[in-house]
Design a protein around this nucleic acid. Sequence first.
DNA 1: CAAATATAATTTGACTATCAAAGTAATTGG
DNA 2: CCAATTACTTTGATAGTCAAATTATATTTG
Lengths: 151, 151
Amino acid sequence: MSNHETVNEILVRLFANILDIEEKCLKIGEFADLSITEMHVIDNIGLTSERTMSDTAKAVKVTSGTLTTAIDNLIKKGYVERRRSSEDRRVVKIRLTERGREAYKSHEDFHKDLVTSALQQLNSHEEEVLIKVLTNIDEFFSEKYKYAGWY
Amino acid sequence: MSNHETVNEILVRLFANILDIEEKCLKIGEFADLSITEMHVIDNIGLTSERTMSDTAKAVKVTSGTLTTAIDNLIKKGYVERRRSSEDRRVVKIRLTERGREAYKSHEDFHKDLVTSALQQLNSHEEEVLIKVLTNIDEFFSEKYKYAGWY
DNA sequence: CAAATATAATTTGACTATCAAAGTAATTGG
DNA sequence: CCAATTACTTTGATAGTCAAATTATATTTG
């Protein structure tokens, strides 16, 4: 099998299943009541004191309506708090609860482990190669995006 | 920023958005009436003469009920044909129509372009490095899977 | 061979994630 | 001060998914 074919095969499999795989990994652990989507919202809210709904919706790339229901559920599950801003009462600020911060850290660790596994046995030159490839993939999608009118 | 952080940042972004990105790319082209999920079913059926429903469901990692409705839609859209096996009348065989094969090839080309972009400017040693890294990532997930009882 | 069991697929009922559009409440700019 | 804008929520719809019930057929077994 050529290098091209090998790379294609692994990339296709990783890309097609990555969210699924990540969700399955999530379900093994302590935060099994979170979907991968919810974990990504938690990841995006992050450890910063507070964020607005609209900033978060934009960052997670969902409509604000979608985020409202997602946050409703995360509040029910005890991961997020919501309060109305007193400066501008249209604005809603959200932040992670203590449990939310624990979930955030757990997810962060998962990614750190992944990267450590990915980079193991690579010397710094090889790490540079990987970064070049990932940047190329990034640019491939940006280029396609451009035609889709996304940039 | 360290190499670890850079790799983490790009991987997280790619993994979190990859299906979304691929779907958006799909919507630019000729096969805009297909979702990325449907394209992956088409990809899995492939160019081989015929497949059973159960084999396909297993490969795509959905229940057979889910596949039934997916195939219903793909038939409506003209990408897939379905017939009952005459050897075993419980079995349903599916295969791509001519339009289905065109969609398949278009998707294949997309992946080929992606890999070509990814590998551009790499010499063969560097390609080997990439394969090593991708294999590491693959194994990281396999290892996690094992604990989840997936293997 | 007839009945019980197993298999392949479909149907049903439920749930999550999503969007667009309509609605509500608050702020801002003329 | 009121028209337009902004921030968010609600509503109604769709896609994708599963588990469990159902249907049809095949296989096993007493």
